[in-house]
């Protein structure tokens, strides 16, 4: 692929991923208590920690989303997003293994339920996007003359 094409592709990728994350954080920031309920449904943390996660986590999503969109500190933001998606995938897989039948609470809280495997697939796509953005940024650092 020509370099310029690749560059445009990467800009589109990071914009897309950024918008998804800002959108996802929007619903959680608007209603942290409902999101705490979604976190509680995963049944991994005690009551207070669910709320602590609900209070802080959406802001990490929002910050990374905004950084990805604006193009500032993209590599770091992409790294965080990749790590987050790995956590999502592990958590979702654990709900499948434990036989929990819950909604992921990814976007709008308390909406219709999305099957876990579909969410896992979606998160793998986001993970791939984040990893390629992360790698591209390094590529630019080291291989461009």
């Amino acid at each position: 692929m020509k370099n310029s094409h690749k560059r445009i592709l990467m800009i589109l990728l990071r914009m897309g991923l950024g918008i998804v994350f800002v959108y996802a954080s929007f619903w959680k920031i608007r209603n942290p208590e409902a999101f705490a309920g979604s976190v509680a449904a995963y049944d991994v943390l005690p009551f207070f920690l669910n709320h602590l996660v609900a209070a802080t986590f959406p802001w990490i999503e929002a910050t990374c989303g905004i950084l990805l969109i604006t193009g500032y500190r993209v590599k770091a933001a992409a790294g965080i997003v990749a790590a987050l998606n790995i956590i999502f995938i592990v958590l979702l897989a654990s709900t499948v293994v434990r036989g929990l039948d819950i909604d992921c609470g990814c976007f709008r809280q308390g909406g219709a339920k999305t099957p876990a495997w579909q969410v896992i697939l979606r998160d793998f796509i986001f993970l791939a996007m984040a990893v390629s953005i992360f790698n591209y940024q390094r590529g630019a650092m080291f291989s461009r003359k």
Binding site: I29, P32, A54, W59, I60, T63, C64
Partner: peptide, 14 residues
Amino acid sequence: IIILIAISIGLAVN
């Protein structure tokens, strides 16, 4: 640093 900043905002807001 990004995570710390984000967490601080979250704590402040909530």
